[in-house]
Computed example of a mutant assay.
Amino acid sequence: MAENSETIKQFKLYTTGSFLGDEAVLLNSNKSLVERYYIFSYYLEINDFKILINTGFSEHVKPSTELKTLKLFHRQDYKIYETLPSQLLKDHVHPDEIDYCIITNFASHHIGYLNAFKNATIITSNEAYHNFITQQVTNNNLQLSFHVMPDDFKERIEFVEDFVQTDHPILGKGFKVFNQDALVSYELPGAMPGQIGLMMKFSNLMIFMCSDAAWCRSNIEKNNLPTKRLLRKAYNGELFIETHSKLIDLKTDMKPPLFIIPSHCKKMDDFDEVMQLLDALK
């Protein structure tokens, strides 16, 4: 387990794929507008530890267009980009050097290359892990995820609940990953079982990776709650609304510069501004 991790030295956002989504379904739009939504993974360094948050979307878990839950999002037009391991190698990071893979939930587009990181400890929430292992959630998207599980998956698991607990006035109970303030996990229930988000603290801004608690940053900026069609597909619709409302409150109340970034999003209105800030962190 990593210790004395005080600052985030490096940060980079990677895109491993995309799919088509209809704003009438995802964003409470009055009219249908199909746009491309991207699938993000995050790389960061804390002290000497190399960390990934979610491991991307891959051909190994490409969903079938016959699945009703996926038809909702027009996912028959999935695009798969360059693999996450290949992108990391171009940035001089070998997959075997990754120390930790933090998985925010076990949807297939979050763990597409998990078995490529052979030396990484896998960190997730207790609930997300046990729902996945016991198949209590019979979501076809989750079942596809088993194709990328390392053989020693169970031996490499650590839980966020084993770290030091903290509390946030809006997000509630959280856990200091590696027992430091630089990276804090918070429960984001509703969209997926055991889902977590991660607050990353830098010297001049904060980034909250909210996983699937929101589909796009514009939802939060416009104070839009999840659509009825999304709520019907959520693991727990009532909790999904509560979590989404907390994100809106977080955006409104936080004093330092804060960017809330989902796991998949269309081109953000302030995308260039966000990327410039992230580039400045290198």
Rank of each mutant, 00 (worst) to 15 (best):
M200C: 03
E242V: 11
Y14T: 06
I98H: 11
M268C: 07
H109W: 07
I102F: 08
Y14S: 13
T104H: 01
D272F: 05
F49R: 13
F208S: 04
T121V: 11
N4E: 10
I39T: 06
E23I: 02
F178K: 15
D151E: 08
T83F: 05
R75M: 03
L250M: 03
I123F: 06
Y81W: 10
N4T: 13
A120T: 11
N119I: 12
M199K: 08
L84D: 08
I103V: 14
D167Q: 15
T83P: 14
F208E: 02
R156S: 06
I241V: 14
F49T: 13
R229L: 08
G194K: 15
N224M: 12
M268T: 03
I8Q: 04
H94C: 11
D96K: 15
D249Q: 15
L142M: 13
A214K: 00
P169N: 08
D91Q: 15
F106A: 09
A213R: 01
N105W: 05
H92A: 09
Y37W: 00
N140C: 02
I39D: 04
P85N: 12
D96G: 07
N131K: 14
A2M: 13
Y81S: 14
V274T: 06
Y186P: 12
T7F: 01
N28I: 14
P63N: 01
I122N: 06
Y38H: 04
V184M: 11
S18A: 12
N139M: 08
Y43P: 09
D99C: 09
S145T: 09
P85K: 15
K12Y: 10
D91A: 13
D91T: 13
F106H: 12
E127T: 15
T7I: 03
E6T: 11
I170P: 09
N105G: 07
N140A: 02
S218C: 02
M254K: 10
A191W: 01
Y38G: 00
Q195D: 04
P193L: 01
K222F: 07
F132V: 08
V93F: 13
F178L: 14
R156H: 09
E242R: 14
I133V: 13
G174D: 14
G237S: 04
I123Y: 06
D96E: 11
G21L: 02
C265A: 00
